[in-house]
C-alpha cells in the first residue's frame, strides 16, 4: 500500500513527464541518430572485400578520406550534384509558377467550391506516389496518346524536315523535372494557400481605394506578404527533389544520374559503402542551408509566431 502510493505520487509528480519525453527521445536516438552517425563514420572507412564491406585500421588508414577526395575530383559526382541541384531548382521554380496562381485562385473561389478543390489538391497526395510517377511513364512513352498528340502538334507547327515520329520525353532530365513538378506541386500549393488565405482582404481594397490597379495590388500588397509562403513552399519542393531517388530511377537519364541514384548505386551495385556514405554526408551538408531557410519561414507562413 505504502509503496503503491509512493509510486503513484512519483508518477504524478515527475514520472509521467519523464516517460513522455524519454520514450520518443530514446527511440530517435537509437533508430535515427545512431544510424546517421554510423553513416558519418562509414564515410571515412575503407572499402574491403569482406562482409560487411568496410574496415578501419589494419593495413587500411584509420580515417580514410578517399571518398571525399574522389567526390571533388571525379566529375561523375560533381555532375550528379549539379544535375540534382539544377533539376530541383527548375522543378521548384515551375511549381511556384503553376502553384502560386492556383493557390491565389483558391482563395478567390466560394467557400463551398474551395473545400472541394482543396480536397482535390490533397487527393493525389494520399494516393500512391509511385503510381503518380507511373502515370507519367505511360503518358510520356512512345505511341502513347499524349506523346502522339504532342508529336502531331509539333509536326503541324514546324517545317516538314523537322518532323519526328515521336517526341523523346522519357529518360531525360525533362522527364525528371516534369514528374517532380507533378508530384511535388501540392507541397507548393498548400503552404502558399495557408499563407495567402490569412491575408487581410481589406488591404487589397485599401490599395485599390488608393488608386492601385489589380496587378499593382498583387505586386505591392499580396506578393510581399506571401514571401514566407513562397520560401516555405519552395523549400518543401527543393529539399526532397534534390535527394529524389524514385523519379530519376524510373524516368531519368541513366548517363547523367541525380545524386540520390548515385548514392543508391554506390551502395547496392558497387557495394562501396564508404563512398555512398561520403556522398550522403555531402548531400546533407548541402541541404542544411535550405532547411534552415525553410524552418525560419514555415512558421511565419502559417502565422504561428503572430504576437498575441
Amino acid at each position: 500500500m505504502a509503496s503503491e502510493s509512493r509510486l503513484y505520487r512519483w508518477f504524478n509528480r515527475r514520472g509521467w513527464s519523464d516517460i513522455v519525453l524519454a520514450a520518443p527521445y530514446v527511440w530517435l536516438l537509437v533508430f535515427f541518430l545512431i544510424p546517421f552517425l554510423i553513416v558519418v563514420g562509414m564515410s571515412v572507412a575503407t572499402r574491403t572485400p569482406t562482409a560487411p564491406p568496410f574496415g578501419y585500421g589494419g593495413e587500411n588508414p584509420l580515417l580514410n578520406f578517399e571518398g571525399y577526395h574522389r567526390l571533388f575530383t571525379d566529375d561523375l559526382y560533381i555532375r550528379a550534384f549539379v544535375t540534382s541541384l539544377v533539376n530541383a531548382a527548375v522543378a521548384m521554380v515551375l511549381c511556384l509558377a503553376i502553384g502560386y496562381p492556383m493557390a491565389l485562385g483558391l482563395t478567390k473561389v466560394d467557400t463551398g467550391w474551395r473545400n472541394i478543390l482543396l480536397m482535390l489538391v490533397i487527393l493525389p497526395f494520399w494516393t500512391s506516389f509511385l503510381l503518380r510517377v507511373y502515370a507519367w511513364m505511360g503518358l510520356m512513352g512512345k505511341n502513347s496518346w499524349f506523346n502522339n498528340l504532342l508529336t502531331g502538334g509539333w509536326n503541324w507547327l514546324v517545317p516538314q524536315d523537322w518532323a519526328v515520329t515521336s517526341i523523346p520525353m522519357m529518360y531525360s532530365n525533362f522527364a525528371v523535372v516534369l514528374v517532380m513538378v507533378y508530384t511535388y506541386l501540392p507541397f507548393m500549393i498548400l503552404p502558399l494557400y495557408a499563407n495567402l488565405e490569412r491575408l487581410d482582404p481589406t488591404l487589397d481594397e485599401a490599395a485599390m481605394d488608393l488608386g492601385t490597379k489589380p496587378f499593382g495590388v498583387f505586386w505591392d500588397v499580396t506578393l510581399p506578404q506571401s514571401i514566407p509562403g513562397i520560401i516555405a513552399g519552395g523549400m518543401l519542393v527543393f529539399i526532397p527533389a534534390a535527394g529524389e531517388l524514385v523519379i530519376p530511377t524510373l524516368v531519368g537519364d541513366a548517363s547523367s544520374p541525380m545524386i540520390g541514384r548515385v548514392i543508391s548505386d554506390e551502395f547496392s551495385q558497387a557495394r562501396d559503402w564508404p563512398m555512398a556514405s561520403a556522398v550522403a554526408v555531402v548531400l546533407l551538408v548541402l541541404m542544411v542551408g535550405p532547411t534552415m531557410l525553410y524552418s525560419h519561414y514555415q512558421a511565419r507562413a502559417v502565422g504561428a509566431d503572430d504576437p498575441k
Binding site: 554510423i38 559503402w273 541541404m287
Partner: peptide, 20 residues
C-alpha cells in the same frame, strides 16, 4: 532530432537504417 527525419533524403534514411 524531431525535425531532422522530415528533411533527411529518403535514400539516406534508407541506407543508414540498412547499415544499422
Amino acid at each position: 532530432l524531431v525535425t531532422a527525419p522530415l528533411i533527411m533524403p529518403e535514400v539516406i534514411t534508407g541506407i543508414s537504417s540498412l547499415i544499422f
